[in-house]
């Protein structure tokens, strides 16, 4: 879905600025950010702590309001003063957000009640809520936990419940704000699998905010934020090629890319774009076969 310039972007920001007051002085978090996200894309926004990536995520679904600049969703300006409350809630429905801490975003005391929270707020008829909840739980693979109390679930399971809660509102786009940062490796793997499946099978646009390069490598496109500005955009291969840029933004390259770059420095000629385990093993395997 990349590089379709002729299509209107699903989300587009125009000179987006945001700052907050701290002890009487204003701190600029975002400085004229221009990004475009297309329907069905899987975009990773990376940047070190304080680069403004979480703020950007919260601006996109109107949890925060920008100081200046515009945000267009499906061509409609959502920063318009005349935007009605219903239109604002519709934006929030279409663009869901899954946060970092799995404990802090579950509202109800029973899993299925929590998943129903979103559709209940939208005023959906009861029978349809039931259908949506069952379907959302099925998609994230948590059907057998429908009647559980959330505190009995693991972190990864709680995050999948949070995803189901967003899915039940039938969103077109889901923003994951460091949603795997507090999970163990198993939980992280399960959540990432769910995210990828949502993007590929359900066609949901995914924006993932992360500082894990291995996760960013899963995306179609990466946007690098540093100091409140977009410093680079491109495919994972294009971004990870530029080690100097990443270092300047206090970011790492994914481990596999680091291995490949190290081997290249030693004089081994690795071919192809290497940013995940399959591409890395393939390239090294090919190299070994060639040298034999």
């Amino acid at each position: 879905m990349n590089n379709e310039e002729n299509k209107i972007p699903f989300i587009k920001t125009q000179d987006l600025c945001f700052s907050y007051e701290d002890n009487g002085k204003s701190i600029e978090v975002l400085k004229k950010v221009n990004i475009e996200i297309y329907k069905g894309e899987y975009v990773a926004i990376i940047g070190h702590n304080g680069s403004g990536k979480s703020t950007l995520a919260r601006l996109l679904n109107m949890i925060l309001e920008p100081d200046s600049g515009k945000i267009f969703v499906d061509g409609k300006d959502i920063t318009d003063e005349n935007l009605t409350e219903d239109e604002m809630f519709d934006v929030r429905r279409r663009i869901g957000l899954v946060q970092q801490n799995p404990d802090n975003q579950i509202v109800a005391t029973i899993v299925e009640e929590d998943v129903a929270f979103g559709p209940e707020n939208l005023g959906i008829p009861s029978a349809e809520i039931r259908e949506r909840v069952d379907k959302a739980l099925e998609i994230v693979g948590m059907t057998q936990y429908a009647r559980y109390e959330p505190h009995r679930l693991s972190g990864g399971q709680k995050q999948r419940i949070a995803i189901a809660g967003v899915l039940a509102m039938l969103p077109e786009c889901i923003i994951f704000d460091e949603s795997t940062a507090m999970l163990d490796p198993k939980g992280r793997k399960d959540v990432l699998k769910t995210v990828k499946q949502l993007n590929e099978e359900k066609g949901i646009t995914v924006i993932t905010v992360t500082h894990y390069m291995n996760e960013a490598a899963m995306a179609d496109r990466i946007i690098v934020l540093d100091n409140g500005q977009v410093v680079a955009q491109g495919t994972p291969a294009q971004i990870f090629e530029n080690e100097r840029l990443l270092n300047a933004c206090s970011l790492d390259v994914p481990q596999c890319t680091a291995v490949a770059l190290g081997l290249k420095k030693l004089g081994y000629n690795l071919n192809g774009d290497i940013y995940d385990i399959p591409s890395c093993t393939e390239a090294i395997g090919k190299l070994l076969a060639d040298t034999n």
Binding site: I106, G118, N121
Partner: peptide, 23 residues
């Protein structure tokens, strides 16, 4: 937790009891 939860509730279109249905 309160701040996070408030954000989560806003993201899920919570706007009080009016117009809310129940599963």
């Amino acid at each position: 937790k309160a701040i996070d939860l408030a954000t989560a509730m806003e993201c899920r279109c919570y706007r009080g009891g009016d117009g809310r249905t129940r599963m």
